[in-house]
Write a protein that binds this DNA or RNA. Sequence first.
DNA 1: TCAAAAGTGTTATGATTACACCCATGA
DNA 2: TCATGGGTGTAATCATAACACTTTTGA
Lengths: 237, 237
Amino acid sequence: MEGEGLEKRKWSNSCHENKIEIDCIMFCFEQNSLKVLLVKNENASEDVSWKLPNTIVEEEETMLKAAQRLLKKYVSEEDFFLEQLKAFGYHSPLSIREKISIGYYAMVRKEKNEEEDDEKNSDKVWVDINNIVGLDQKAMVILDFSLKELRKNICCSAVGFNLLPEKFTLLQVVHLYEKILGIEINKTNFRRKMLQRKLVHGINEKEEGVSNRAAEFYSLNVPKHEFFWNAKFNFNF
Amino acid sequence: MEGEGLEKRKWSNSCHENKIEIDCIMFCFEQNSLKVLLVKNENASEDVSWKLPNTIVEEEETMLKAAQRLLKKYVSEEDFFLEQLKAFGYHSPLSIREKISIGYYAMVRKEKNEEEDDEKNSDKVWVDINNIVGLDQKAMVILDFSLKELRKNICCSAVGFNLLPEKFTLLQVVHLYEKILGIEINKTNFRRKMLQRKLVHGINEKEEGVSNRAAEFYSLNVPKHEFFWNAKFNFNF
DNA sequence: TCAAAAGTGTTATGATTACACCCATGA
DNA sequence: TCATGGGTGTAATCATAACACTTTTGA
């Protein structure tokens, strides 16, 4: 259709454009709010100044490895949850061809020392999911999808506990579920369900130095969770 | 390909390997069994003789368009459900690099005339999900994932009804759910739930020519389904 | 008439909700 | 003592499961 040279350039261009991207929604839960990590958009041409952590899958690297590499770049904690969402297709103004980004979502436990770090490092910021602005369309699509996925999953698995420390109070769990689902939950009935189903169990330790009755610490009963939800699944019908 | 320069071949090879594949699980429900479509494996070197319908995403084609093209190649019915599962990475012995296949799942209503067609056309076959053999590892992974996804989804959406005709009997629905979930369901209580929740409604038509009491035909109450499940979702906590 | 599947009624059980109430702790 | 959040008890209500029962149809 067009000249030889052009044809060739188009072809090699297309090879470059072919590269698979990774975008990762990194969730954390701190100060009773559900946050995601955004990083500064270097080539911010328009009013879009933040973006999701992202990278390109290198030659001889798997998608998962690329996502892990991306996560480690921003998060010091070794113990994280990481799972693929799906492949998102989108159009960038620079190319005719659909570009593909594999979306992942991660859940990290934020450490105190990291918080201080973040304040200095203004290239990244943890933003409450209700206060997110300045993301482009692709990022918003992935973010919405990840939130839906997260909401679905915390109702039938223990995945939410990846955002809490090993020892937690039941009020922390309630707050976590409230923020993720965006609803109010009856605290007393919630704790009873959790305990009756034996999804968590007390570890005979209490809060210290609080100005009200000290709450007991609980920890997750992983096998019970798996058993409970596997059994529960079919039960609705 | 053989006669060309090595440099060039390598280059075009790597471009070729980069191509994104589509694999699609196509479900149908006939004769009270849940089936998936398999197609003959042309380059069957080993004992793997069947494979999933698959294709490559062409230049200037989106993933979704490629999946739709693939589906239309095998299914005549225009009215189908098609949704992406996720991106599957796998290693083929021919390449060092991880290959990527975007998995989709589709639900089709099989027509009577197609059945006859299929008998003649031995390149494709609808196989009961319990009788599947001779698929390679990648296909099995995608199939397992799609089944889990389907099981999750029919319990909180109307997606299963994509496998049934517009008018159906409640027994058909029970059988469908039994086969998908792999469990037995109490028929009388199931019908009550469906009707109480108004997820389906009678249309004042009955079966004809059956050798037992004619069952009433029902049809899906789509808005109620959406309302019910959106409201229901958070309810577990 | 019988067999087979459709469809209804009823009851015990258990889950869910709402709300009143008591407990522990620092200020 | 008070405010704050931790935690228990209880009774009404609702959903579920199990099973006995009646209805309709062609052979």
